[in-house]
Amino acid sequence: MNELATLHEAITSTIKTAMPGIQTVDAYALENENTALPALFHAISGLKPGVDPGDGRACILATFEARILVDSGQPQARLQAATLASQMTVLLRKQFWEVDFVEAAKSVQALPAQPVAGSTLPVEWRVQWEQALLLGSVQWPWPNEPGPLVFAFSPDTGLEHEGSYQSPEDLS
């Protein structure tokens, strides 16, 4: 399984556990007349380069979007949709989805989708956030390295001063 599939499974699982009132949680799906509501559909909606971690992995800043749908025929449907959107924004606080290649969610925002006048379509809110994804494997091109980390200060550096190098523990 690739990292994005793992991430989307983790997102789905976390949302299902944290928000049990949502009947349908899925990635990259579209609602249809058989979709159990309320529903939440999440997906990556944009990608751009992030800050290179310098370890062989690629950092991608992903924009995610969650669409929250509530049956418009329900009493207080708009309030229910706004409540679910607020619960989702709280869930995103310091969220890593329990995977080790994702940085914390940031730039979280939630907005209602504009309804079509007289429509019987579900009430919809959209929650959007960004997360840096560190994709690929850590690479270290020096097979016999690293050795112990030691420090020296100029001008006392080089082979003739190796005996005076200090470990980080010795510097404290």
Results as ranks from 00 to 15, higher is better:
S167A: 07
S172Y: 13
T63V: 15
D55Q: 14
E31C: 01
P168H: 06
V116T: 14
Q109K: 15
W97E: 00
G21S: 12
L92W: 11
G21V: 11
T35D: 03
L171D: 14
D156S: 05
G147Q: 11
A152R: 06
P122D: 08
P155C: 13
P148T: 10
A43L: 10
A117L: 06
A104K: 12
V127Q: 01
A5R: 06
A113P: 00
A5N: 11
A39N: 10
Q166I: 06
S86W: 14
P20F: 03
F41R: 01
E3I: 09
A85C: 11
L159H: 14
T83S: 09
E160S: 04
K106Y: 11
D100T: 09
L69P: 00
T24L: 02
L121E: 15
L111C: 02
W97D: 01
A27T: 03
A117N: 06
R67F: 01
T14A: 15
K16D: 01
D71Q: 09
R126F: 00
F153C: 14
M1V: 10
L111H: 08
V108W: 08
P141N: 14
L47T: 09
D26V: 03
A113T: 03
P143W: 15
P38Q: 02
K106P: 01
F151P: 03
T14N: 12
V150I: 15
S86I: 09
D71R: 05
G73Y: 08
V90Y: 06
D26A: 12
A77C: 12
D100A: 04
V108T: 12
S13K: 13
I44E: 15
Q87V: 04
S119W: 07
H8M: 04
Q95I: 03
T83Q: 09
G54V: 08
L135T: 06
A85Q: 07
L111W: 05
E9P: 00
K106M: 07
A110H: 00
R126A: 00
L134F: 07
G147T: 13
Q114L: 11
I15R: 01
T63G: 05
L40E: 00
V116E: 11
A85V: 11
L134Q: 07
S172D: 13
A43S: 12
F153G: 10
F153A: 14
V102Y: 02
S86E: 14
W142R: 05
W97Y: 04
V116P: 02
V25E: 00
L30D: 13
